[in-house]
Structures are given as structure tokens and as C-alpha cells.
């Protein structure tokens, strides 16, 4: 898996797994402390919208 045009602010992320369970294409994986995005990610932005602490953003222009 590679980080795919998603930016994770590791200083904000609480590793709660909320984005994992709400991803409509199951493209996010949380190995305890590290969020990984697979290339299934279609940039729908749902995880960005839902993150309680604004730890996720979409890479501009990617």
C-alpha cells in the first residue's frame, strides 16, 4: 500500500479508526498508529469531512 494523495497530519491524528470504518471503498487501513491509504481511494473526501480533529486533507491537484 502507498500513501495516495491523502495527507495525514500525524500530529493531530488520534488513531481512532473512524475514517477506516466510514470509508465507502475500504481504502484505509490502520495498523494501530499508522494510517495507510490504498490506491482504491477515489478522493471522495468523506474521511476528511468526518475526522473529528481535522487530521486529514486531500493533496491539492493530485
Amino acid at each position: 500500500m502507498k500513501v495516495f494523495h491523502m495527507i495525514v497530519d500525524v500530529d493531530r491524528c488520534l488513531h481512532c479508526g473512524g475514517c477506516v470504518g466510514s470509508c465507502p471503498v475500504n481504502a484505509i487501513f490502520l495498523n494501530d498508529f499508522i494510517l495507510e491509504f490504498s490506491d482504491r481511494c477515489n478522493r471522495c473526501g468523506r474521511c476528511v469531512k468526518l475526522c473529528p480533529v481535522q487530521a486529514l486533507s486531500l493533496e491539492a491537484g493530485a
Binding site: 466510514s22 476528511v48 469531512k49 468526518l50 475526522c51 473529528p52 480533529v53 481535522q54 486529514l56 486533507s57
Partner: peptide, 12 residues
């Protein structure tokens, strides 16, 4: 906060 009404970081 309900998903439909949420915005990034708003829970906080």
C-alpha cells in the same frame, strides 16, 4: 455529530 452534518474538525 451526525455524518451528514459534520465538517472536518467540527467535533472538536
Amino acid at each position: 455529530i451526525m455524518g451528514t452534518m459534520a465538517k472536518s474538525g467540527e467535533a472538536k
